[in-house]
Deep mutational scan, measured.
Amino acid sequence: QAKEDFKKMMEEAKFNPRATFSEFAAKHAKDSRFKAIEKMKDREALFNEF
């Protein structure tokens, strides 16, 4: 479920497709859906799949 929420957050964010993961992470670090994925490498993997 956390992965689905994370993907939904990325869809809602409508970020620049050229944005890096660190830019995305800095902007969304306080979002509970971002925090729900415990490991940063897992967050980055989901970001890269998107």
Score class of each variant (00 low, 15 high):
residue 37 I to H: 01
residue 6 F to C: 02
residue 11 E to V: 11
residue 1 Q to W: 05
residue 17 P to R: 08
residue 40 M to Q: 12
residue 5 D to T: 04
residue 24 F to R: 01
residue 8 K to S: 08
residue 34 F to T: 01
residue 17 P to K: 13
residue 15 F to L: 15
residue 10 M to E: 02
residue 3 K to T: 12
residue 1 Q to T: 06
residue 11 E to K: 14
residue 24 F to T: 01
residue 24 F to Q: 03
residue 49 E to L: 07
residue 16 N to F: 06
residue 37 I to Y: 03
residue 47 F to H: 06
residue 41 K to F: 05
residue 29 A to P: 01
residue 37 I to K: 00
residue 14 K to R: 11
residue 7 K to E: 06
residue 30 K to V: 10
residue 23 E to V: 03
residue 50 F to H: 04
residue 42 D to G: 01
residue 43 R to K: 07
residue 6 F to A: 00
residue 29 A to V: 10
residue 38 E to S: 10
residue 18 R to K: 12
residue 15 F to E: 13
residue 28 H to M: 15
residue 20 T to Y: 01
residue 48 N to Q: 07
residue 46 L to A: 08
residue 39 K to E: 13
residue 18 R to E: 15
residue 47 F to S: 05
residue 40 M to H: 11
residue 42 D to T: 07
residue 45 A to R: 13
residue 25 A to D: 06
residue 5 D to G: 07
residue 35 K to N: 11
residue 8 K to R: 13
residue 25 A to W: 02
residue 25 A to R: 06
residue 27 K to G: 09
residue 5 D to L: 01
residue 5 D to H: 07
residue 5 D to V: 01
residue 42 D to V: 07
residue 24 F to M: 05
residue 12 E to M: 05
residue 35 K to W: 14
residue 16 N to I: 11
residue 16 N to M: 09
residue 26 A to P: 01
residue 42 D to M: 06
residue 9 M to C: 00
residue 15 F to W: 11
residue 1 Q to G: 12
residue 30 K to P: 06
residue 43 R to I: 07
residue 39 K to M: 12
residue 44 E to W: 01
residue 17 P to C: 09
residue 29 A to H: 09
residue 50 F to C: 06
residue 42 D to Y: 01
residue 44 E to G: 01
residue 3 K to L: 10
residue 40 M to N: 06
residue 47 F to R: 02
residue 49 E to Y: 05
residue 26 A to R: 13
residue 49 E to H: 02
residue 45 A to N: 11
residue 13 A to N: 11
residue 44 E to H: 05
residue 50 F to L: 07
residue 41 K to Q: 15
residue 49 E to I: 03
residue 37 I to M: 07
residue 43 R to Y: 00
residue 22 S to M: 11
residue 35 K to L: 14
residue 15 F to C: 10
residue 36 A to W: 00
residue 26 A to W: 05
residue 40 M to D: 15
residue 31 D to Y: 00
residue 48 N to L: 06
residue 4 E to W: 03
residue 18 R to D: 15
residue 9 M to D: 03
residue 26 A to D: 13
residue 35 K to I: 15
residue 25 A to H: 04
residue 21 F to K: 02
residue 24 F to G: 02
residue 32 S to C: 11
residue 40 M to F: 12
residue 11 E to P: 00
residue 23 E to A: 08
residue 24 F to D: 05
residue 18 R to F: 12
residue 37 I to T: 03
residue 1 Q to I: 01
residue 32 S to G: 11
residue 29 A to Y: 12
residue 19 A to C: 12
residue 38 E to R: 10
residue 27 K to N: 15
residue 19 A to V: 14
residue 8 K to D: 05
residue 16 N to Y: 15
residue 25 A to L: 05
residue 18 R to T: 14
residue 39 K to Y: 06
residue 27 K to D: 13
residue 21 F to R: 02
residue 47 F to T: 04
residue 10 M to K: 01
residue 9 M to E: 02
residue 50 F to G: 07
residue 18 R to I: 13
residue 40 M to C: 04
residue 48 N to R: 08
residue 40 M to P: 08
residue 21 F to C: 02
residue 38 E to V: 09
residue 28 H to K: 15
residue 16 N to L: 08
residue 19 A to G: 15
residue 12 E to L: 01
residue 44 E to P: 00
residue 34 F to K: 02
residue 8 K to M: 11
residue 18 R to C: 14
residue 32 S to W: 10
residue 19 A to E: 15
residue 21 F to W: 10
residue 47 F to G: 04
residue 6 F to R: 01
residue 47 F to W: 13
residue 31 D to R: 00
residue 12 E to W: 02
residue 38 E to H: 08
residue 1 Q to E: 10
residue 16 N to E: 12
residue 19 A to M: 15
residue 39 K to I: 06
residue 49 E to Q: 11
residue 49 E to S: 09
residue 14 K to G: 14
residue 36 A to V: 02
residue 7 K to H: 08
residue 37 I to N: 03
residue 40 M to K: 06
residue 21 F to S: 04
residue 24 F to C: 00
residue 4 E to D: 05
residue 12 E to N: 05
residue 18 R to G: 15
residue 47 F to M: 04
residue 49 E to P: 01
residue 20 T to H: 05
residue 45 A to G: 10
residue 38 E to G: 11
residue 1 Q to Y: 08
residue 33 R to G: 01
residue 16 N to K: 08
residue 8 K to H: 08
residue 31 D to I: 00
residue 31 D to S: 00
residue 36 A to S: 08
residue 40 M to W: 05
residue 46 L to V: 06
residue 17 P to E: 14
residue 26 A to C: 15
residue 41 K to V: 12
residue 32 S to N: 12
residue 35 K to R: 12
residue 43 R to W: 00
residue 47 F to L: 03
residue 26 A to G: 07
residue 8 K to Y: 04
residue 36 A to I: 00
residue 2 A to S: 08
residue 31 D to N: 00
residue 16 N to S: 12
residue 12 E to I: 01
residue 8 K to A: 10
residue 11 E to T: 11
residue 8 K to Q: 09
residue 1 Q to A: 09
residue 26 A to T: 11
residue 10 M to H: 05
residue 41 K to I: 15
residue 6 F to L: 02
residue 13 A to G: 14
residue 30 K to L: 10
residue 25 A to F: 03
residue 6 F to I: 01
residue 41 K to M: 09
residue 25 A to Y: 05
residue 36 A to K: 09
residue 43 R to F: 03
residue 42 D to Q: 06
residue 20 T to R: 05
residue 9 M to H: 02
residue 20 T to F: 01
residue 34 F to Q: 15
residue 22 S to K: 12
residue 29 A to N: 09
residue 11 E to I: 10
residue 15 F to K: 09
residue 14 K to Q: 13
residue 2 A to I: 12
residue 25 A to S: 12
residue 19 A to L: 15
residue 18 R to Q: 14
residue 23 E to L: 01
